[in-house]
């Protein structure tokens, strides 16, 4: 009964029938949300665990490049804004770990996978933040690109993931706005400030364009993910939305986009020049960038927090009725 049938597509796992899949796909096509107790294909569950946990790790590791700047923020206002943003990213990680847990993976397993580098996270967070202006540019471009992706995922078919995304999107708009505000002010400031903003754009433009993922032609999972309503748009579609919004705004700010081929076509879409993916893949593979440092920092946080977890466990294990002292 549980043997694979060789003539079935491989997203139909052993023990599943084409009829079950058809009914499942019909629910999704009708706009229904799948909830944790519902029947779902094993491959749907596996892909979601992979995506949601990666996404959670990205939020958590995403705190690191910006967190470095909290103590160096130029004013109290900027410091409080940055602290709130970094706190939000911690919260986003929590929402997403929770959503992944509803699929039957534990938080321990996910954190273990991150620390042993079995799980991935967005390689954008392995780029260094070189000056204070990078903090603004990351907010504007990296959070800006993330919002495009997250807005799409807010409409995805899995209830807990969708809900986490709706909550995250409502908070991300602040991250985007504060970054944009900072950069627009710098771009209108002294020549040095303007240069800082431009340098930051030069560093972050291409990584931001690339963080929305490989071209559709090089993206292996897109077929199943779109059939199951997990990915409602392709990487290239989301990238186009991001570029269409940000190119005119960056230009309006008086900055120069480091892509000599960028132009608007007759439909009003801004068309980027060829993307050089060599750096993107080198950073993903850990040949370049700060992957080792990021995981070491995360591991140190895990180790340094061990005594808190141990103390709380001892407290939980105390005999009933014993006072906390």
């Amino acid at each position: 009964m549980t043997q694979t049938q060789p003539n079935l597509p491989k997203y139909i796992s052993a023990g599943e029938t084409p009829e079950q899949h058809a009914a499942f796909e019909a629910r999704i096509a009708a706009g229904e949300k799948i909830e944790p107790g519902d029947w779902m294909p094993a491959e749907y569950r596996r892909q979601l665990i992979r995506m949601i946990s990666q996404h959670a790790h990205s939020e958590v590791v995403g705190m690191l490049p910006e967190g470095e700047w909290i103590s160096k923020a130029p004013t109290l206002k900027r410091k409080t804004i940055l602290m709130a943003k970094v706190q939000d990213e911690a919260g986003h990680g929590q929402y997403l770990y929770h959503a992944a847990e509803t699929l039957g993976i534990t938080r321990e397993e996910m954190i273990e996978a991150l620390l042993t580098r079995k799980a991935k996270y967005s390689s954008i967070f392995n780029y260094p933040t070189t000056t204070w202006a990078d903090v603004g540019m990351v907010g504007w471009l990296v959070d800006g690109a993330a919002i495009k992706n997250q807005t799409m995922l807010a409409g995805c078919s899995y209830g807990p993931y969708s809900r986490a995304m709706v909550r995250i999107c409502s908070e991300e708009t602040f991250h985007h706005k504060q970054g944009k505000e900072m950069i627009v002010l710098y771009a209108q400031g002294t020549p040095e400030q303007k240069q800082m903003a431009q340098d930051a754009l030069n560093r972050w433009w291409w990584p931001a364009v690339q963080m929305l993922g490989p071209h559709d032609s090089d993206s292996p999972n897109t077929g199943e993910l779109s059939r199951w309503g997990i990915k409602l748009k392709t990487n290239d579609e989301v990238r186009q939305e991001f570029i269409n919004e940000h190119v005119p705004e960056l230009m309006e700010a008086g900055l120069t986009i480091p892509d000599p081929d960028m132009h608007q076509d007759e439909n009003g879409n801004w068309i980027h020049g060829p993307i050089d993916w060599t750096e993107f893949w080198a950073v993903i593979k850990g040949e370049r960038g700060l992957g080792k440092e990021r995981i070491a920092t995360r591991q140190a946080a895990q180790d340094e927090g061990a005594w808190v977890r141990e103390a709380l466990e001892a407290y939980m294990a105390r005999p009933k009725g014993e006072a906390a002292d």
């Binding site: 020549p191 240069q195 340098d199 190119v247 120069t256 986009i257 480091p258 750096e279 370049r288």
Partner: peptide, 23 residues
């Protein structure tokens, strides 16, 4: 309609992305 036939900042040419690799 076109961003930057000659990308520049002030009098300085803008750096192309692949000329400034990540450390």
């Amino acid at each position: 309609g076109r961003v930057n036939e000659h990308p520049h900042v002030g009098d300085q040419p803008a750096v192309k992305h692949n000329e400034e690799p990540v450390k």
